[in-house]
């Protein structure tokens, strides 16, 4: 069951188009699997859309619009055949991902092993953010860390805990330098998450501290 949702403010800002594209991606993905939040966004959408309708538009005489109209209507129709939704594959297992993430499936690189039972695949979002699918096998654990910047995590499939709370598929988690946590999964099926950070992690305990000088290389 989904317990961790975006705030109402984040949902509104998402609808308005006023949040970072990284947060927008995870909020949109969350809404794809959360009817409750999607309904809230729909309400804001129709409110904002009626604002647009109320704009007193000038009578169109702008030649730029004439040109635009002409060029658009020359374009072919896009038939969108029903395609099989792209899945994330790891070791013969296939995971469905929320629709907003589907177009990034083919921009996802190879899996690499980070630690004992934690795997990571980089995702090229086309900007400078550092995005990954991360899979924790049962018993897999990311060393305790805090964040130099902000970390957005969407649980795609499975369950994990991090010492602060327990999370389930669809949960959206926002962490920053006020949070120290150590994500691990005890679920038999493991846990697949999608994660975006804007700065490398900062490991906070034990030998994992040794990773800090190199953390930009793996836990990005």
């Amino acid at each position: 069951m989904i317990n961790y949702h975006p705030t109402d403010k984040q949902l509104r800002q998402f609808a308005e188009g006023n949040i970072s594209s990284a947060l927008a991606l995870v909020v949109a993905s969350h809404c794809d699997v959360c009817v409750q939040c999607q309904t809230k966004v729909d309400e804001v959408n129709s409110e904002l859309a009626s604002n647009i309708e109320n704009i007193k538009a000038h009578t169109v005489t702008d030649p730029a619009f004439e040109k635009m109209l002409a060029s658009i209507t020359q374009l072919p129709v896009l038939d969108t055949p029903v395609q099989k939704s792209p899945c994330i594959e790891l070791d013969g297992r296939f995971f469905d991902v929320p629709r907003p993430l589907q177009r990034f499936v083919k921009k996802t690189g190879n899996w690499s092993k980070l630690l004992g039972k934690v795997w990571q695949a980089p995702v090229d979002l086309g900007d400078s953010s550092m995005a990954h699918f991360i899979f924790m096998e049962k018993g897999g654990r990311v060393p305790e860390h805090t964040h130099r910047g902000t970390e957005f995590t969407l649980v795609v499939n499975g369950e994990f805990s991090d010492g602060l709370a327990d999370y389930d598929s669809g949960d959206l988690i926002v962490m920053d330098d006020e949070h120290i946590h150590s994500p691990h999964s005890n679920a038999d099926e493991g846990c697949l998450v999608f994660s975006i950070v804007d700065k490398p992690l900062q490991f906070t305990s034990g030998i994992a501290r040794l990773l800090n000088p190199f953390s930009h290389l793996f836990f990005k």
Partner: peptide, 30 residues
């Protein structure tokens, strides 16, 4: 599922996010 204006507004909003993503200056190398 909704009015034409809501549909078109939602398309515009999503495109705006795509444009933001493209425009976002590549943050300075860490």
């Amino acid at each position: 599922k909704g009015s034409p204006s809501t549909w078109i507004f939602t398309i515009a909003r999503n495109i705006r996010f795509d444009m933001l993503r493209k425009l976002q200056n590549r943050k300075e190398d860490i």
